[in-house]
């Protein structure tokens, strides 16, 4: 099936219109990490647009340490059976066999994620070989464009997962927005050098410079824990948010999840965000990213 010619967003990428299109359907929504069928049900009932099925949320991966891998297929298929919204699951960076397994399980999206322990410190998965779509993390524009070239149909800025500290998420979306804005201001003959500096293909760089936006949907992840965090990311121009540990590591997951969904839709209405922020109980405790020693910063995984 040829899909390239019909997509006005995926022209220079390996991704197809059905796969970039599913990400477009998730826009304005919240994707929630869940570790059990019960949590998946709570997430769907709260209005999540998709769930990320995994064994441990990032905060627990941090606490437990050790090698973090793809989740047990039983857990993933159980969650697929539980909900009617799309189900995503994580594979390790470069672990193409975990990705093959997830595709076989019929997940709707694979997250090639730095939250798990990398399986390859040089190469990412060749995502163009798969029919199932991929979302990948990025801390800057060059990284995003390399992932799109490999076939990613959706990008999420990384932030720093499992911290409840939104500062890295802010840094990454500002960086990506700033680099896109700079490209749009360059003369056409300056884009060759820009492509070299970004370590990304010239055709894709030229497309971004012309359109002023990524050719795929951009969500924000890593540290979003409150309705205000989500609304701030939407005001920064994010297409939507991932909330990992922020919901089920808080005092009142169902209410907090619904509140973050509401704040994501009415992100520019302080009255609604204020109302959504009331009486949610304890937020996740959190870790300041500045207190994390460099080897424990997940955002630095990915190349």
């Amino acid at each position: 099936m040829t899909t390239e010619s019909t997509s006005h967003t995926a022209a220079a990428t390996g991704a197809t219109a059905v796969n970039t299109g599913l990400a477009q359907m998730l826009k304005g929504g919240v994707i929630m990490d869940v570790v059990t069928r019960e949590q998946a049900r709570i997430a769907e009932d709260a209005g999540a647009v998709a769930v990320m099925a995994l064994e441990r949320v990032p905060a627990d991966i941090r606490a437990t340490g050790g090698v973090a891998r793809m989740s047990d297929p039983d857990l993933i298929t159980g969650i697929i059976d539980e909900v009617s919204i799309p189900v995503m699951a994580k594979a390790r960076i470069g672990h193409f066999v975990e990705a093959q397994i997830l595709e076989h399980l019929k997940v709707d999206y694979i997250d090639e994620s730095e939250v798990l322990s990398p399986a390859d410190f040089t190469h990412h998965i060749d995502k163009s070989k798969f029919k199932v779509p991929f979302v990948c993390g990025a801390t800057n524009l060059g990284e995003a464009l390399r992932r799109i070239t490999e076939g990613a149909s959706m990008i999420r800025s990384k932030g720093e997962a499992g911290t409840g500290d939104v500062s890295e998420a802010m840094k990454h979306i500002r960086t990506i927005n700033g680099e896109i804005a700079r490209l749009t201001s360059l003369a056409e003959d300056e884009l060759y050098l820009a492509a070299k500096e970004l370590q990304a293909p010239y055709a894709l760089v030229k497309q971004i410079a012309r359109e002023g936006r990524l050719p795929v949907v951009l969500f924000v992840a890593g540290g979003v824990a409150t309705p205000a965090d989500a609304a701030m990311m939407m005001q920064m121009g994010a297409d939507g948010v991932f909330v990992g540990s922020g919901i089920f590591k808080s005092g009142n997951p169902a209410e907090r999840a619904a509140a973050i969904v509401k704040a994501t839709t009415y992100y520019d209405d302080a009255g609604v965000v204020a109302e959504a922020s009331k009486g949610l109980g304890e937020a996740m405790v959190g870790i300041n990213v500045a207190d994390l020693p460099a080897p424990h910063r997940l955002a630095e995984r990915g190349w």
Binding site: L26, K27, G29, D45, G47, V261
Partner: peptide, 11 residues
Amino acid sequence: PGGESTTMARL
């Protein structure tokens, strides 16, 4: 539009 009907109905 397209999206998740469950999310829209709740909002």
